[in-house]
């Protein structure tokens, strides 16, 4: 079943003059159709300005499509009577954790969402417990968010979304401001949620390494799903997408370091297969070649 289905979506940013008159428009999305299966882990890639964030905001009705429709669990985002249900189905996490934390105590921050929708107090506490545990932040329950590192703050922000028990979490560059450990911790928390709880994850990132473990990678370019040089859509498994090294470079993206090394070695004449994603795979391939 598809939790998100976008059909022929167009989105324009309107540029207004001092009198609020529309003087120009910039098209951010032109005719995007994308279905995302319930329980899947999907990575959206694309260079700055390709339309990734605009698309993310369509999923929880922060942006409404100019043309086309976006359905979230079958609900049309343009139908205002569904707004609350849509926001409870699809939660969002943004780049800067400091902009998403509102309370002085971690547990209060995590409980803010459920409290806001009228969840009874006992259940709020239970949800906070669960949410903190799922992101590995239980030990920090009574701390002030000020005392946390960037990665920890971001995990608190995620817990705040988890406490709303959404079916889908949309994350717009959640690791851009974090150090390597912070990035690793946030990603493993998100993968756990996806695997154990079956939460659908839509992850937007500029770090190619983070896309390696996704079920599916979609590349956006100029507000559309990008096309490879052979005309196919850049929408597939990480292995399929990262095999297209030349296409990704043309799209101002890159491939994971190990994939790039594999590509370079192949160019130098080693009989490696395409789209090697991990160190393990590369080592196995090289051992195989050495034995020949």
């Amino acid at each position: 079943m598809n939790i998100i289905s976008a059909a022929h979506v167009v989105y324009d940013y309107l540029i207004r003059d001092e009198n609020d008159k529309v003087v120009d428009k910039r098209t951010a999305l032109r005719d995007v159709s994308l279905e995302i299966a319930q329980g899947s882990f999907v990575c959206l890639l694309g260079h700055n300005g390709s339309g990734k964030s605009t698309f993310a905001k369509l999923i929880n009705a922060m942006n409404l499509p100019g043309e086309g429709t976006v359905l979230v669990s079958g609900m049309d985002t343009k139908d205002e009577s569904h707004l609350l249900d849509i926001r409870m189905t699809a939660g969002m996490v943004f780049q800067n954790p400091d902009n998403q934390i509102i309370s002085n105590v971690v547990e209060e921050d995590v409980g803010f969402g459920p409290e806001n929708i009228g969840v009874p107090e006992d259940e709020i506490l239970q949800r906070v417990d669960e949410a903190l545990q799922k992101v590995g932040m239980t030990a920090y329950r009574l701390k002030s968010p000020n005392q946390l590192s960037g990665g920890q703050k971001q995990r608190v922000a995620i817990a705040g979304i988890v406490a709303m028990r959404p079916k889908c979490i949309v994350m717009d560059e959640p690791t851009a401001m974090l150090d390597p450990t912070g990035r690793k911790d946030v990603l493993s928390a998100v993968h756990e949620l996806n695997k154990k709880e079956g939460v659908t994850v839509v992850l937007i990132t500029h770090y190619m390494e983070e896309a390696v473990d996704a079920d599916r990678v979609v590349v956006l370019e100029k507000g559309e799903i990008a096309k490879a040089s052979d005309g196919s859509l850049m929408d597939g498994t990480p292995r399929e997408i990262f095999s297209k090294v030349e296409d990704l470079r043309r799209l101002r993206l890159s491939v994971p370091v190990i994939t790039e090394l594999g590509y370079e070695l192949k160019q130098a004449g080693l009989p490696l297969r395409d789209g090697i994603l991990t160190r393990d795979e590369l080592v196995k391939e090289l051992v195989r070649i050495k034995a020949q």
Partner: peptide, 18 residues
């Protein structure tokens, strides 16, 4: 809380694999 470059880890893996 830091790491070495991915390639440095690869070096260790390769050496371990002969």
């Amino acid at each position: 809380g830091l790491s070495a470059p991915e390639i440095t880890y690869l070096a260790a893996d390769l050496n371990a694999a002969g």
